[in-house]
Design a protein around this nucleic acid. Structure first.
Lengths: 237, 237
DNA sequence: CTCATGTCGATACACTGTATTTTGACGAGA
DNA sequence: TCTCGTCAAAATACAGTGTATCGACATGAG
């Protein structure tokens, strides 16, 4: 018995439904982050007692699940181009954009399986483009690998973004900006390689960094799609 | 001013220091997950009033940061083999193992930049093995890409593991096990590709799935290390 | 011995998610 | 029309949270 199973209660004169609740929660989270979402505040925003919400959701985690699925509706592209590579690329970028619009999404993404209707629709659209291309196992591995990449990359990007924002207008990368602590540790000489990166490394745009890594991973997938499961093929040691 | 900057207070006859606090918090989290960690419970486990802790940490988030860095000590391998590919592979697997031992780590990983001494030591060891191999930009991209992959993959693995555990001894993959909701949605016929996967897909061991995707990503990195930054090289469209 | 310092514990506050109880409105039967 | 039962909604209650504040006490200096 999960959220998705529970039917909405009979529509009474009450001007309240799950959609409005979720919308209020999303608005709250957009404004003040996930921790600004409390059942009391959501209820207040709807001019309703806190306990009213429990007729529509049965726990706060369920509300979070619903919020995530709400945003998956933004992620699902309106029309699909034909190429699997383009589909995965677009999915990754749309997910990233959604996380930039709703930073709290980065905290939730991957935290629990996304099983809402919109999330499933996204998965369906993704899997569909591989139809007949190779065996199911390879397709699963491909999709999961790309997903793991962009999920992790987005999470780190948002984390860095927040850190920079918190430490006040980051000068360069996190290493330079993150206060006296890192500098002091680097000064100990215990981290020469790291020090070189902090000193000589270039500041790179987050989006191109994301896109570059994504292309690498897509290349890897492409290589494996050419040679279906079973055959291993190392390029270099 | 972060946790790492704050010196430990002068060692009084008080049998309390940051190490003991962090150890208690980690133990608590190991037993009951992150949400079982409350400052009051940590303090209680050390026979101390809750406010005592604020002499050593200044916020709960800092405690979490310290917990993460504590586990990074487990992740740092005792001795490094020479090959960059092996180093990244081992790092990924050790991180995964650490997350299986301390599932709460998966909730924290990537959530904020890891800047503790142990985390930096891990980064240092990772970067060092690339010394002189290519330009710094490529190395950075390589490390971050692999990191993004295994971070995301681990997070999903733990999420699925919990879901299976919660839904009581999962029969197969999450799709089958996740209650009537998914089954009902699949029955609508709106998700034919997904349905095929649920029906025909094989159950795959989480570890080999992790290792396989990791190998793909490592291959992609290897291909780029061979051809330094700037040159793009698509294998397939 | 007195006094200042500064550490520690207790208390306090505002807030959380959620269970339980109270209220009140509305429809059915007399 | 009046009464009563039912059921949704609101109010209250509870156990817990992170953290600020304050009072007491022990320990060191003069």
């Amino acid at each position: 018995m999960t959220v998705w199973d529970r039917p909405e209660p009979p529509t009474r004169p009450a001007p309240l439904d799950r959609e409005r609740i979720v919308a209020a929660a999303v608005a709250l989270a957009d404004e003040g982050g996930l921790e600004a979402v409390s059942l009391r505040k959501v209820a207040a925003r709807l001019d309703v007692g806190p306990m009213r919400l429990y007729g529509y959701i049965s726990t706060k985690e369920e509300l979070f699940d619903l919020m995530v699925d709400e945003v998956y509706a933004e992620i699902l592209p309106e029309e699909q181009p034909g190429d699997w590579r383009e589909v995965l690329r677009v999915l990754a970028h749309r997910t990233r954009q959604a996380c930039l619009r709703h930073e709290w999404l980065a905290d939730l993404l991957g935290g629990r399986p996304a099983l809402g209707p919109n999330a499933l629709a996204v998965t369906e659209a993704t899997l569909a483009v591989f139809d007949g291309l190779t065996d199911l196992d390879t397709v699963m591995r491909a999709v999961e690998t790309v997903n793991a990449y962009f999920t992790g990359a987005i999470r780190r990007e948002i984390a860095n973004l927040r850190a920079e924002r918190a430490s006040g207008l980051s000068e360069r990368e996190w290493q330079h900006a993150s206060g006296p602590h890192v500098r002091r540790l680097l000064a100990t000489g215990r981290f020469p390689a790291l020090a070189r990166f902090v000193h000589d490394g270039n500041e790179v745009d987050a989006e191109v960094s994301f896109a570059t890594g994504l292309d690498w991973v897509l290349d890897a997938v492409a290589a494996r799609l050419a040679r279906p499961a079973g055959v291993t093929f190392r390029i270099s040691g």
